[in-house]
Simulated assay, not measured.
Amino acid sequence: MLLLISLSQLSSSVHRNQENQSADVTFILLGFSEYPELQVPLFLLFLAIYTVTVLGNLGMIMVIKINPKLHAPMYYFLSHLSFVDFCYSTVVTPKLLENLVVEDRTISFTGCIMQFFFACVFVVTETFMLAVMAYDRFVAVCSPLLYTVVMSQKLCSLLVGASYSWGIACSLTFTYFLLELSFRGNNIINNFVCEHAAIVSMSCSDPYISQKIILVSATFNEISSLMIILTSYVFIFITVMKMPSTGGRHKAFSTCASHLTAITIFHGTILFLYCVPNSRNSWLMVKVASVFYTVVIPMLNPLIYSLRNKDVKETVKKLFNTTLSCDKCKARILIISF
């Protein structure tokens, strides 16, 4: 309901903003157009990645839903992470694929703003979903006897709801200040996605406030989420090192390995893109990093969690074997009928 109300308000704001423009505003996403010989290979590569992303994330959600052994807080958060990854990739990748095969790479003012809005919602949500999952691992390792009491269904729903709500709130704020800017005519964005920095650089008005708002918010989001993650894993590390059994330590570390891998890839890419000197000055570097965290990471997360999780792998094998058995039964019935 909150998202529907927010979208309604955003759509009306976009409409009012468009009316205030002196001419029709469009954006041209250059993407990888400077490499014409790579258009087809890149299209096939990104199509394959997107296919794996959709199948992997929706498959993960289905596996968690049908296996009672996976009805635990950790998998509840993982199902929402998969949903966020699926949505995030779907906001960006189809337009990227389209621009690789068509000459006209324009996107309307409304389309660009809406893509930016949804991309912000899901990237901020994922940032805090990973932090929530770190807290979940902290409780599981450091207070295993109280785990089911502390991580109640009510608390889990509250943490997930807070992550989505904060993502929507941040995105609405960023988008509102973007809509306060003025744009005219055709605007060329040297990227494949409507990124904030690229959009404000096309503005005819002073983007100072919009830039400061997103800088402060992004810094707060990154620092606060990393503090939750680092604090959780410091206590996890101390607790694990105190365990007398080597087997116990190995088991505890293995339950956190998938999450640590996902965190390292996600935050490492963002920190490299926005914090490494001169990385913002190279548009090729920006595009590659943007591809990584908008297209590749949503594909990697279900693979990371499924390959390292015994229960998930067993469920997938059972589903696969069941499907094969059903296909064989159908084949036999068809043969008998003939």
Rank of each mutant, 00 (worst) to 15 (best):
residue 268 G to C: 04
residue 216 V to C: 11
residue 314 E to F: 08
residue 316 V to T: 02
residue 186 N to E: 15
residue 218 A to S: 15
residue 275 C to M: 11
residue 308 R to C: 07
residue 278 N to E: 10
residue 230 L to T: 14
residue 174 F to S: 06
residue 212 K to H: 11
residue 274 Y to S: 06
residue 307 L to W: 09
residue 219 T to R: 08
residue 207 P to T: 04
residue 244 P to N: 05
residue 298 P to K: 01
residue 181 L to W: 00
residue 263 I to G: 09
residue 285 M to K: 04
residue 243 M to S: 06
residue 249 R to V: 03
residue 175 T to I: 02
residue 208 Y to I: 12
residue 175 T to C: 05
residue 230 L to P: 00
residue 199 I to D: 07
residue 223 I to N: 05
residue 275 C to W: 07
residue 246 T to Q: 09
residue 290 S to H: 03
residue 209 I to V: 13
residue 315 T to A: 09
residue 257 A to M: 14
residue 206 D to K: 01
residue 304 I to N: 07
residue 278 N to M: 09
residue 314 E to R: 07
residue 296 V to C: 08
residue 188 I to L: 07
residue 224 S to C: 07
residue 203 S to C: 04
residue 301 N to C: 05
residue 283 W to G: 01
residue 203 S to E: 08
residue 189 I to P: 10
residue 226 L to P: 07
residue 296 V to E: 04
residue 238 I to D: 12
residue 293 Y to F: 11
residue 302 P to Q: 04
residue 310 K to D: 12
residue 224 S to P: 03
residue 217 S to A: 12
residue 264 T to A: 15
residue 305 Y to G: 03
residue 268 G to Q: 04
residue 184 R to P: 00
residue 306 S to D: 01
residue 179 L to C: 07
residue 263 I to C: 14
residue 213 I to C: 05
residue 218 A to D: 08
residue 243 M to I: 08
residue 285 M to W: 06
residue 303 L to R: 03
residue 231 T to S: 15
residue 212 K to Q: 14
residue 238 I to C: 10
residue 293 Y to W: 15
residue 216 V to E: 11
residue 290 S to C: 06
residue 219 T to E: 10
residue 260 L to A: 02
residue 233 Y to Q: 01
residue 287 K to T: 02
residue 302 P to W: 05
residue 274 Y to N: 11
residue 277 P to E: 01
residue 197 A to K: 09
residue 209 I to A: 08
residue 198 A to N: 14
residue 255 T to D: 14
residue 249 R to G: 03
residue 215 L to V: 11
residue 186 N to C: 04
residue 258 S to E: 11
residue 216 V to K: 12
residue 291 V to H: 06
residue 279 S to Y: 10
residue 272 F to P: 00
residue 202 M to L: 04
residue 196 H to K: 02
residue 296 V to S: 02
residue 261 T to S: 13
residue 211 Q to G: 08
residue 215 L to P: 00
residue 194 C to W: 07
